[in-house]
Write a protein that binds this DNA or RNA. Structure first.
Length: 874
RNA sequence: GGUCGCUUGGCUCAGUUGGUUAGAGCGCGCCGUUCACAUCGGCGAGGUCAGUGGUUCGAAUCCACUAGCGACCACCA
């Protein structure tokens, strides 16, 4: 029989892509191909789709590692396991990328090309780019069912989105309304509230009067918008302004006639600025709300390009910033500017391009979240989604995020879903004059034009859990069938905590509406990957670690381990190359453990039961392993994969490699136990480091038997060992090791005999003998072992063994140390003497140095004498 | 302003219902290593668990307050 030997070191690059191909060829990524009983429970994760233009970053890699861990764990545990892959069209992000590219390569904007040609460019670009991220996902070892690959903008998803839109419309949950939206003049698109970022920065606050006769002064950071003021708001309790409330005052503001109604509102802060607020309904959300409450006219000042509209004299056509400067200059010239101060202002900017947001009134489509509908048992989307969390039907991990979800849902406003960009899902909406038609297909008659807007990316994302499983075709007549019946609702949604609001809450609402089901049982929120300094990794900062480069250097398994272990749910964590390199060391260590074990097994068996232990060490390692299995299962059930990994690491490196393998070298003949330990460890580690474990498994057991579908180990052992006994056994093993390094230590040999004996009777006899020979008198203690637990017997019989061992070990250590010191000192002295005897040295060296060396020699000689004395005593 | 989180050895972090001597990895020091592995082994130094007060037989852990840091939400124009 040909012995199985592994290469001396693990070289991941040699095996990884081969192994992945082997997995693909097996077909087991697709749950339909698993040989399972019909009633096997399902376990589904739908992959949060990365943007199709993305390159894999460590955040993706972490997500993949986490999800693959659970998928592989559940697959081995007998679940019908589906992990469904996909990509996101990321409308705005993708369009921005292509626009940038167009500008760089051809110097053109999207408007130069026109809609049709531009979209063609986008699709060409996607075709070229989409394969990259998918390939990178494979590199990480993700066991995704590629046969079900989806894209948020592919044909089936377009149909699903259209269907959803129509159904929402028919249910009365969609409406078209004018509202202040967050407009990005650069992207020329509306942004959702949560796509707006805030930047704290200094801003000039101007205090002025509209004209010389105006009785109140107002304060603003945006004087240019004041051209569109239609009211001044004051606090009703403000004594300064009480008398004006209700009046309408005229003013000539920089040549513009304004009719300003003085209104009262409690939200106006009396001690900010002058306590009087110029109300510009068209260009501030709060002002818009004031206008609605007070029936104020709306005057638009700024257009979609961020320029002052027609009808504002010399200011028309200026950018907002230029107009601001012009107006401030004029106010100053007219002596109307009372104050100018720098305050700290929270500027709203576009999360995509960083341009300052221009609030503008605009016609948009909205999802009504507060309107009760029949489909949700006369609850609103908001109520239904809140109820789902309230009933404990969704578990958030960690639990504290439940509250965040709750707070967000409670404050949710109607969701603006139309976007003024070209790339994305088109709205199934057509207009003819004032008529609106919403339907699955275009109206037959002439004269209708389709809405030119596209849908918010999150609209299609919100349908992800069921659109990927064949909704609506698989939901005819409200009955689930096919994949939807089999795999929905899903078990786990793993995503970053930062999009719990953007995404998770909307998935819950949309799924409840479309299928009546909560889309997932558990939401696992992972933290962000930070760099070594604790900064968020980003391309612009250049502090990102490229996972692909790391895989190349250290292997995918090492990268995975570094992202799984040492992390805590919902908490950001730091990753550095050092950490990855550390786990590369571990993978190599594991490889060599396997290598060593294989050298000690005659004929490896893949389905070995735990063999009976012959010695204490055997029982100890089997018990440790069984406990490790239990612990790993427990931790994984709580999503504490980091701790599961740490437990495994501890067992593998400490218990097995550093202790048991050393004992095995002494005791010999451990084939069966080592075989069992290796098999079990390969299985336990597989979800963490699939490539290496599978590589080893295949090298041992041949190409027909894949580790990825082996059964997950159970915590079996031939004989249960009590925890207290474990402590004692560990002590004995420590004794053996110490005895070994102390060379020939008689009594320790006895301990070794104990270990060989294995039998309790033999053990007790050996102990008795040991104790009899002890000088301390402890030997007088009787061993009354019969009928008592091992540990108790040993403890009662001694302190004996312990005291003895400690004394012996200490003495041995001391002796060893002294001997070592002796040898080293002797060498040192010889060297010094030689140097001092060297004529060249004594001639050329400065006297101070010679003196130093002589002193050293003297000290060393006296130390040596002391050591000799002590050695003689031992 | 509101909410949540964090503060543990030089660094990064664990510490699961409060329980003997607070752990790990990296780093550091010393020693070793042709016999699975230097991508290794052994030994060691290093912590008043941010501070104060409280509850308790017992607190890193629970409570209150204080300080520093971070995130999210809202937003004063």
């Amino acid at each position: 029989m040909k012995p199985i030997t592994l290469a001396k070191a693990y070289e991941p690059a040699k095996y990884e892509s081969k192994i992945y191909k082997r997995w693909l060829a097996s077909g087991f990524f697709n749950p339909d191909n698993l040989n399972l009983p019909a009633d096997a429970p399902t376990y589904t994760i739908i992959l949060p789709p990365p943007n199709i233009t993305d390159r894999l970053h460590l955040g993706h890699a972490a997500m993949l590692a986490i999800e693959d861990l659970f998928i592989r764990y559940k697959r081995m545990s007998g679940y019908r396991t589906l992990w469904l892959p996909g990509t996101d069209h990321a409308a705005i992000a993708t369009q921005t990328v292509v626009e940038k590219k167009l500008k760089q390569e051809a110097g053109k904007s999207r408007h130069d090309l026109g809609r049709e040609k531009f979209l063609k460019k986008v699709w060409e670009f996607l075709k070229a780019t989409q394969a990259i991220i998918l390939k990178q996902i494979e590199t990480m070892g993700a066991s995704l069912d590629w046969s079900r690959l989806a894209f948020t903008l592919d044909e089936p998803r377009q149909a699903a989105v259209k269907e959803m839109f129509v159904r929402l419309y028919e249910a009365g949950l969609l409406y078209r309304g004018e509202r202040i939206v967050n407009w990005c003049p650069h992207c020329r698109s509306t942004l959702a509230d949560d796509e707006v970022e805030y930047r704290e920065q200094p801003a000039e606050l101007y205090t002025f009067r509209y004209d010389a006769d105006f009785p109140l002064a107002i304060a603003t950071t945006r004087p240019e918008t004041k051209l569109g003021d239609t009211a001044v708001a004051v606090n009703p309790a403000d004594p300064r302004y009480k008398k004006f409330i209700g009046q309408t005052l005229r003013a000539n503001f920089c040549g513009q006639e304004l009719n300003l109604k003085i209104i009262a509102d409690r939200q106006v802060v009396m001690d900010f600025g002058t306590g009087a607020l110029g109300v510009t309904p068209a260009h501030a959300l709060a002002d818009w709300q004031l206008a609605e409450a007070n029936n104020l006219p709306v005057v638009k000042v700024i257009d979609e390009h961020g320029l002052i509209r027609e009808g504002f004299g010399a200011f028309s056509g200026l950018t907002a910033v230029a107009a601001r400067q012009a107006i401030v200059a004029q106010l100053r010239a007219d002596g109307l500017l009372e104050r100018e101060e720098t305050i700290s202002n929270n500027l709203s900017v576009c999360y995509r391009c960083g341009t300052a947001i221009e609030p503008l009134p605009s016609r948009q489509w909205f999802v009504a979240v507060d309107k009760p509908v029949a489909q949700l048992n006369n609850q609103s989307l908001k109520q239904a989604a809140l109820a789902a969390a309230d009933m404990g039907q969704i578990t958030f991990v960690p639990e504290r995020f439940t509250k965040r979800y709750w707070d967000w849902m409670n404050n949710l406003r109607d969701w603006c879903i139309s976007r003024q960009i070209w790339f994305g899902h088109s709205l199934p909406v057509w207009y003819r004059g004032e008529e609106i038609y919403v339907g699955r297909t275009a109206p037959a008659e002439n004269g209708w034009t389709q809405d030119s807007d596209t849908l918010d990316t999150w609209f299609s994302s919100s349908m992800w859990t069921f659109s990927t499983l064949g909704w609506p075709d698989n939901f005819a007549d409200g009955q689930k069938q096919g994949d939807l019946a089999k795999y929905h609702p899903t078990q786990l949604m793993d995503t970053g905590y930062e999009i719990i609001t953007l995404w998770v809450s909307r998935m819950i609402m949309m799924s409840l509406f479309a299928t009546g089901e909560i889309p997932f049982a558990t939401v696992y929120l992972h933290g962000m990957v930070l760099d070594k300094q604790g900064k968020k990794m980003s391309k612009s900062k250049g502090n990102g670690i490229d996972p692909m480069a790391m895989v190349k250097l250290y292997g995918a398994d090492a990268v995975r381990l570094s992202l799984l272990i040492g992390t805590t749910p919902g908490t950001d964590f730091r990753v550095s190359e050092d950490k990855i390199a550390g786990y590369r060391n571990f993978t190599n260590k594991f490889w060599n453990i396997a290598r060593f074990i294989l050298l000690n097994i005659n004929q490896p068996q893949s389905d070995l039961k735990p063999p009976p232990g012959q010695t204490l060490a055997d029982r100890w390692i089997l018990e440790e392993l069984a406990q490790t299995i239990t612990e790993v299962d427990r931790q994984l059930a709580d999503y504490n994969f980091s701790r599961a990994g740490e437990q495994l690491e501890k067992f593998t490196w400490d218990s097995l490699a550093d202790w048991y393998l050393e004992i095995a070298k002494i005791e010999g003949d451990k084939g069966a136990i080592l075989n069992y330990c290796l098999n079990t460890l390969l299985k336990l580690w597989h979800p963490f480091m699939p490539f290496m474990t599978e590589t080893i498994w295949l090298q041992i057991y041949g190409q027909d038997k894949l580790l990825m579908v082996e059964a997950w180990p159970t915590a079996d052992r031939p004989e249960r060992v009590a925890t207290a006994d474990m402590a004692v056994i560990k002590e004995l093993i420590v004794g053996i090791r110490a005895a070994r390094s102390a060379n020939k230590l008689e009594p320790a040999q006895k301990v070794k005999a104990v270990l060989y004996a294995g039998e309790r009777q033999a053990l007790l006899q050996a102990q008795a003998e040991l104790i009899k020979n002890l000088r301390t008198g402890i030997g007088e203690l009787a061993i009354e072992a019969s009928g008592r637990p091992l540990a108790e017997a040993i403890y009662s019989s001694v302190g004996g063994i312990e005291v003895y061992l400690i004394a012996a070990v200490d003495a041995a250590k001391e002796k060893l140390r002294l001997e070592k010191d002796f040898v080293n000192l002797e060498k040192f002295i010889t060297g010094l003497e030689a140097r001092l005897a060297n004529a060249e040295f004594t001639a050329k060296a400065p006297p101070a140095i010679i003196q130093q060396e002589t002193d050293k020699l003297r000290r060393a000689q006296s130390d040596l004498a002391k050591i000799t004395e002590r050695l003689n005593k031992l």
